[in-house]
Design a binder for these strands. Structure first.
Lengths: 271, 271
DNA sequence: CAGTGGTCTAGACCACCCT
DNA sequence: GGGTGGTCTAGACCACTGA
């Protein structure tokens, strides 16, 4: 059991898949051809269907593209029509700026009703609460407030505020898997205005984010960005090409799950 | 060649696929089992690999879920982590409100530089230009300004402003396939403030949208939403589970495409 | 235990592309 | 024509599930 796992795992198609994934990331450029299916058949001593299973997987992931009669090629980096759960730091660096943070407030606090509701917790339940001023290239960008239920990670703030909340949660086995931003515009409070050093304008972009690990609500956060320095780009896909199942999901009496906690299936239905 | 296409097309797996898709949409509820693979093998007189090809396709689309040892079931409507290209009307109705429109301005106009640049057109080239006040349940929600190159659809405004721009474009064979919103916050101009009947606040949420049909830029639009009445919900996926190809795409000398027109591969890279 | 999906074989013919 | 992917067969054994 410890031997014979060449590269990818127990299954043959995984070995082929791993080989191809490695080829793509280390040897080939976009547009290059991978070995033909029959070649792979020989090099791995497997049947063609097995090779195809491996190639199929990478095609489905958008890593490879097939072209009948020509071959199979490394696909150009795919259009990404999905926003990602990124941290302020990653986001700033992606935009070519150096992120900075000043902790304004930290500690435990009872959950306000809006926060409790959003996380599916009883009102007033204990939460880690952190308020930070975030900056990019030295100038203030946003004020960010975070709540995380204490019981999920009691020791979260024991060593001070971690550089990345997502990182700290990940270390505790609570990797964020999806989330939801609600974006709106309003005016800065005088306190926010001062913190963000805003002068001409008071317009700010606010986002409320709920972060989940699977079904479990992990974190609630509110950010307030300078309207004159920050914008969000959202890629948009074609309207609904999908196949819709369920003709009429008969209301069920048993098996009613937590009501206020949306599942991924509820995401994307704005409002 | 004209006969023998039972339901889905020439290929056997497409027939099975069509049969299953029909089952899912007309007979089965979420969670119901589909016929077993071996059953399908018999009813369609095909081999099991062929059945699997059909089922695989639907599983990849998120319509079905396999469970080893138990069966294959209709999947719950999938989490939708993608924002869709919707029109103001669809969007309003989805939120349970009745959309309304008042045309403020309409006609042809030379493209301002920002618009021309965004659409990859020469500055000053002729564009359809429409400004509309959009309302929901009778109260003003946003001011929207649209530019569409005249040459794409010369007759676009011949019968007045169409109820849906996307619809009108679709009728002319220019179906929008993807787009990109840039969302920001700022203050309303006095004109906007008056049109939107804003009183307490001046904060507005602005979106700049570019709409494409494949590689072709179709439309540029700017909207200005009342900050106190409008917000956008953006679903967020897990941060980068993907496999990244290209170690170093050697700069190519030939085959350089239109420079200022981004392809889908550039979407999602904010900023 | 019987039934399900998961993996795998060793062939086959076809449609397509390039030379 | 020779190579490529696209489809398809008729089996096989395995791992897992549920009664």
């Amino acid at each position: 059991m410890s031997r014979s796992r060449a590269q990818g795992g127990e299954h043959k198609y995984l070995a082929v898949r791993a080989y191809l994934a490695d080829l793509v990331t280390t040897e080939l450029d976009v547009g290059d051809a991978i070995p033909s299916e029959r070649t792979l058949t020989e090099t791995f001593n497997v049947s063609r269907m097995t090779v195809r299973q491996a190639v199929d997987a990478l095609v489905n992931e958008g890593v490879l593209e097939r072209a009948q009669g020509r071959g199979t090629f490394v696909a150009p980096p795919r259009a990404d029509f999905e926003m990602r759960l990124t941290t302020f730091g990653e986001e700033a660096r992606r935009r070519g700026m150096e992120p900075g943070t000043r902790v304004l407030e930290t500690g435990a606090a009872p959950a306000p009703s809006s926060v409790a509701e959003a996380l599916g917790r009883p009102q007033g339940s204990p939460m880690h609460h952190v308020v930070r001023l975030r900056s990019a290239d030295g100038s203030p960008m946003s004020v960010e407030e975070v709540w995380i239920p204490c019981d999920l990670a009691p020791d979260l703030l024991d060593d001070g505020v971690p550089p990345s909340m997502y990182g700290a949660l990940r270390e505790r086995g609570l990797a964020p898997t999806w989330g939801e931003d609600t974006i709106s515009a309003s005016e800065a409070t005088t306190q926010e205005q001062a913190l963000l050093e805003m002068r001409g304008t008071r317009a700010v972009l606010r986002t409320v984010r709920r972060t989940f690990a699977g079904d479990q609500p992990l974190m609630y956060s509110r950010s307030c960005y300078r309207g004159d320095r920050y914008s969000v780009v959202v890629p948009l896909r074609e309207a609904r090409p999908m196949l819709v199942p369920r003709p009429r999901p008969v209301p069920l009496d048993d098996d009613v799950p937590l009501a206020t906690v949306p599942t991924p299936a509820d995401a994307g239905r704005a409002d």
